[in-house]
Deep mutational scan, measured.
Amino acid sequence: AQASVVANQLIPINTYLTLVMMRSEVVTPVGIPAEDIPRLVSMQVNRAVPLGTTLMPDMVKGYA
Rank of each mutant, 00 (worst) to 15 (best):
R39A: 07
V30I: 14
V27E: 02
R39P: 03
P33W: 11
T28N: 09
S42A: 12
A1N: 08
L40E: 00
T28E: 14
R47N: 09
A7T: 11
M59N: 06
M56K: 09
V20N: 15
E25S: 07
V26S: 09
P57A: 15
D58M: 08
S24M: 10
Q44A: 11
V45M: 08
M59K: 02
V26W: 05
M21I: 03
M21F: 10
E25V: 05
M43T: 07
A3K: 08
G31Y: 02
P38C: 05
Q44R: 10
D36T: 06
T28I: 10
R39N: 12
M56P: 01
T15S: 13
Q44C: 03
P50I: 07
V26N: 12
M21W: 03
S42I: 04
I13R: 10
G62I: 04
N46F: 10
V45E: 00
N14H: 14
L51V: 08
P38V: 07
G62V: 05
N8D: 15
L17R: 00
M59H: 12
A34Q: 12
Q2T: 09
V49F: 02
V45A: 07
L51Q: 15
V41A: 06
V45T: 13
T15R: 04
I11Q: 01
E25K: 04
L51H: 10
A3Y: 13
K61Y: 14
V60Y: 01
P50M: 09
G31E: 01
I11S: 02
A1E: 15
P57I: 07
T28C: 05
V60H: 00
V26I: 08
R23Q: 03
Q2E: 15
E35A: 09
P38M: 07
V30W: 08
Y63R: 03
G31P: 01
V45C: 03
M59C: 03
P57W: 09
A48Y: 14
V49L: 13
Q9K: 09
S4E: 01
I11P: 01
V26Y: 13
A64V: 06
A48T: 15
I37S: 08
T28W: 04
T18G: 07
E25W: 05
T54W: 02
A1L: 15
G31L: 01
N46L: 12
N14D: 13
T28D: 15
Q44Y: 11
Q2A: 13
T15G: 09
L51R: 07
N14C: 04
G52T: 03
R23H: 04
Q2H: 09
V20G: 15
P50V: 07
V60T: 02
I32S: 01
S4T: 05
N8A: 13
V6G: 01
S4P: 01
V41N: 05
E25T: 06
M59E: 03
Q9F: 12
I37K: 05
D36V: 07
Q9C: 05
Y63P: 05
L10Y: 15
M22H: 00
L10A: 11
M21K: 08
T53F: 13
T18Q: 12
T18I: 07
N46S: 14
M21G: 02
N14S: 08
T18N: 06
L17G: 00
V60P: 01
V60I: 13
I37Q: 15
A3G: 13
M56E: 09
A3P: 14
G31M: 03
N46W: 08
D58S: 10
R23F: 04
T15M: 13
Y63H: 04
Y16D: 04
M21R: 03
P38Y: 10
P33I: 07
M22I: 12
S42G: 08
E35V: 11
L55T: 00
M59G: 04
P29N: 05
Q9N: 10
A34K: 10
M56T: 10
A48I: 14
S24F: 13
S42T: 09
G62Y: 07
A34I: 06
V26D: 15
A64P: 09
K61D: 06
P12Q: 08
M43Y: 13
N8G: 09
V41Q: 11
G52L: 06
T28F: 04
L19M: 13
T28H: 07
N14G: 13
P38F: 11
V26G: 05
A48V: 11
L19K: 10
Y63D: 03
G52F: 14
S4D: 01
L17H: 00
L55Q: 00
Q44W: 06
V30N: 09
P29F: 04
V27H: 05
T53E: 09
I37C: 03
E35I: 06
M21L: 10
T28A: 07
V20E: 08
P57Q: 10
V26Q: 13
N14Y: 14
K61M: 07
P12C: 04
A3T: 11
T18K: 03
Y63C: 03
M22Q: 00
E35Y: 06
I13K: 09
K61C: 14
N8E: 10
M43H: 10
S4A: 03
S4K: 01
D36L: 06
Q9W: 10
M56G: 06
N8S: 12
K61R: 14
D58C: 05
V60S: 01
P33L: 10
D58Y: 11
P38D: 11
L19I: 15
S42R: 07
L17C: 02
M22W: 02
I11N: 00
P50C: 05
D36R: 06
E25N: 08
S24T: 08
D36E: 08
T18F: 04
L17M: 13
L19T: 15
T53M: 11
V6R: 04
P33K: 10
N8Y: 09
A64E: 09
V27I: 10
L51S: 11
I32L: 08
N8P: 02
G31C: 03
Q2S: 11
I13M: 12
G62T: 05
A7S: 14
I11G: 01
E25C: 04
I32C: 03
P38S: 06
R47P: 02
D58R: 05
S42P: 02
R47L: 12
A48L: 11
R47F: 08
I32H: 01
R47K: 15
V41H: 07
A3S: 15
N14R: 08
D36Y: 08
L17F: 03
Y63Q: 04
A1Y: 09
P29E: 09
Y63M: 04
G31W: 02
E25Y: 07
V5E: 02
M43P: 00
V41Y: 11
A48H: 06
E35S: 10
A7C: 03
P33H: 12
S24K: 06
T18Y: 04
M43L: 10
D36A: 10
I32N: 00
I37N: 01
V60R: 00
I32P: 00
Q44G: 04
T18L: 11
Y16R: 09
S4W: 02
T54S: 06
G62F: 09
V41C: 04
R47W: 05
A1C: 03
E25L: 06
